[in-house]
Amino acid sequence: MKTSIKFLDLELKNPIIAASGTFGFGEEYAEYYDIEKLGGISYKGLTLDPRDGNEGIRVWETPAGMMNSVGLENPGVDAFASDIWPRIQDRNLISVVNVGGSTLETYLEAIRRLDHCDYDILELNISCPNVKAGGMAFGTEAKSAERITRAVRMTTQKRLMVKLSPNVGNIGEIAKACEAGGADAISLINTVQAMAIDTKSRQIVFNNTYAGLSGPAIRPIALRMVHQTAKAVKIPIVGMGGITNADEVIQFLMAGASAVQIGTAFFTNPNQIFRIPAELEMWMEKEGIRSLEEIIGIV
């Protein structure tokens, strides 16, 4: 296929991957759409034990985005491996399994228990701002990012992609540390830590005080951080943050991403996202481009 790209030793039919936490395990969208039009899905973030998630308000709109405070509600790795994975494993899609944790040991144990599932890429989430268990503490310092990456590298043979937080000073340094720790790829950005106050009640909206901002509002920041990361590391990058259409996908590829993830835009106009692969193909024809790989990192 025209829009296919090589990612590590994998072939994606197109560079569009559904972003973790916005697409569940793909089963709901599959009721309405041909989800195999996508290049891949990053499944809802898993933790060692099941989690009920945060209490109180979990979503708040902003003019060009939304804040979420889901707090990693998920069934836990065992239920995923025994009940969910068997139902979804045969899809003609690249499967990304996203894992979060609170301590090094909970990460490693979660990853071990998933190891017998034949999924394609492990996305190590060291960037969830919504819970202590989200591991953002690991992702905001180069040293700890390298340490956890190395430990995971020694625990599993899976392709290892580390998902980084934008809530850091020097993203290039952290990406480099992950590369040094043995990461095969980097994905970024997770949500931007944010906050809302209800002036009527004079209260903070979220029980957890801060929440994660996603959607078009964060796109320019995400693009800048993908660019900085691409300049810092040699391993491939999956870029994300506020992407809604084919032109924006192209921007992320030009900034240095080999593929992208799309999340919040599914809530706005899912039809439009499933049309992006066809739009990319049209764009390539118009520009006389044979492979999307020609434009990766050209700026």
Partner: peptide, 16 residues
Amino acid sequence: KRMACGIGACLVCTCK
């Protein structure tokens, strides 16, 4: 409840 996806994928509308 406040909603985003409307179809059960995003878990922002969870009800205890």
